[in-house]
């Protein structure tokens, strides 16, 4: 089912976020071949300052930086795609930009099944496994029978 549209920023937000957090090797395995594209901005490794909030909800403060690689490409039909990915893998950023561009074309449905659905399901499974392990360490308090009640 193709519900994607380049006019829907929330769908695009979601796929770009999935691509940003994907394992570069897994993305490459799912999408070994890149389409014909022209690099608008070749992959560039940089840092993003990650912010937190004082007391979790207050004023922002600078927590520290993280590595990010970005890239922009243009397909033969003129569609532009952007990739912003965690880490320093330039091919990851290039692939993410290519997928972002292709997701705005009529190849979206095919790409969703071949690439994005796998990445999403695998990320969900990783999340679920950690959550299940955490749940097993949840404390169930019980009150000891008090001496005078026995």
């Amino acid at each position: 089912m193709n519900t994607e549209s380049h006019n829907d920023p929330s769908a695009r937000q979601r796929w770009m976020s999935v691509l940003a957090k994907a394992d570069p090797a897994r993305l490459a395995a799912l999408m070994p071949d890149l389409p014909t594209l022209e690099p608008l901005r070749p992959p560039e490794v940089g840092a993003v300052m990650v912010r937190g909030r004082v007391g979790a909800t207050g004023a922002p403060f600078n927590l520290g930086e993280m590595t990010v690689t970005r890239c922009s490409v243009r397909l033969a039909d003129g569609t532009v795609g952007h990739g912003y990915v965690q880490g320093r893998d330039k091919t990851h950023a290039l692939r993410a930009a290519a997928v972002d561009a292709l997701m705005q074309t009529d190849q979206a449905a095919q790409l969703r099944v071949a690439v994005l659905d796998h990445l999403t399901a695998e990320a969900d499974a990783r999340w679920a496994l950690r959550a299940a392990k955490a749940a097993a360490t949840k404390v169930d308090f019980f009150t000891m029978v008090r001496g005078e009640d026995a």
């Binding site: 560039e44 490794v45 940089g46 840092a47 993003v48 300052m49 990650v50 912010r51 937190g52 909030r53 979790a56 909800t57 922002p60 600078n62 927590l63 930086e65 590595t67 990010v68 970005r70 912003y84 999340w127 950690r130 959550a131 392990k133 955490a134 360490t137």
Partner: peptide
């Protein structure tokens, strides 16, 4: 090393209330 990296921007403040908690 970090002094060699261009600063691409700053994030929105992280939402620790929405954290996937291990502990």
């Amino acid at each position: 090393y970090r002094t060699t990296l261009p600063r691409l921007g700053a994030s929105n403040p992280v939402d620790t209330g929405a954290m996937a908690v291990d502990r």
